[in-house]
């Protein structure tokens, strides 16, 4: 159905290039959104229950850190990683909460690169729980690192306590 404007020129002739431009723009926008999605990291898993006690949330966060930092490590190594976080919470030179310690900028690589947001397995959860219940196979360590990857001369100079699996635990 063609309608004419005041000049008598069919409207469709003037509209077509505009539609083409709009289509092109839409394609670009869609591509941009798609690209943005590609670079965006998956969002953190939501807790199943809408209201969880703070302590449970902190424990879940601790388990996430254990899983991200020590997946595939021996069980006592996983407990030790969780214990390092708790040792820091108790230490006056570190933040005094579990989230404060975990999210301290550049304290843990897995927080910086988003690996923290992977869903922890049952073993990592049990390890985090054991540390909260009072076990510390790290023997009071405040730091741990993988000697094959760590570069900071300061970190490497900390007094070593022990090695568990791939991690060195230090004061």
């Amino acid at each position: 159905m063609k309608k004419s404007c005041k000049t008598g020129k069919p409207i469709v002739d003037g509209v077509m290039p505009l539609i083409k431009k709009m289509l092109l723009l839409m394609i670009v926008v869609i591509l941009l959104i798609g690209a943005a999605r590609l670079v965006r990291r998956p969002s953190p898993p939501l807790a199943e229950k809408p209201r969880v006690e703070l302590e449970e949330q902190e424990l879940a966060l601790l388990a996430q850190l254990v899983y991200a930092e020590a997946e595939g490590e021996p069980y006592e190594g996983q407990v030790a990683v969780a214990a390092v976080v708790l040792n820091r919470v108790d230490h006056p030179l570190f933040p005094d909460t579990i989230p404060g310690v975990i999210y301290e900028p550049h304290a843990f690589t897995v927080v910086a690169n988003g690996r923290l947001y992977k869903q922890p397995d049952e073993r990592a959860q049990a390890a985090a729980r054991a540390a909260v219940d009072g076990w510390d196979p790290s023997d009071g360590a405040l730091y741990f690192y993988n000697p094959a990857l760590a570069r900071s001369p300061w970190l490497l100079s900390r007094p070593k306590i022990k090695t568990i699996g791939k991690h060195v635990f230090a004061k």
Partner: peptide, 23 residues
């Protein structure tokens, strides 16, 4: 001040004396 210091990306510098003073 301790809380704010821990939010800054200065962890690699340790800043132990400053933190000790605040403690």
């Amino acid at each position: 001040a301790q809380g704010k210091l821990s939010q800054l990306p200065l962890t690699p510098l340790a800043l132990e004396r400053t933190k000790e003073l605040l403690r």
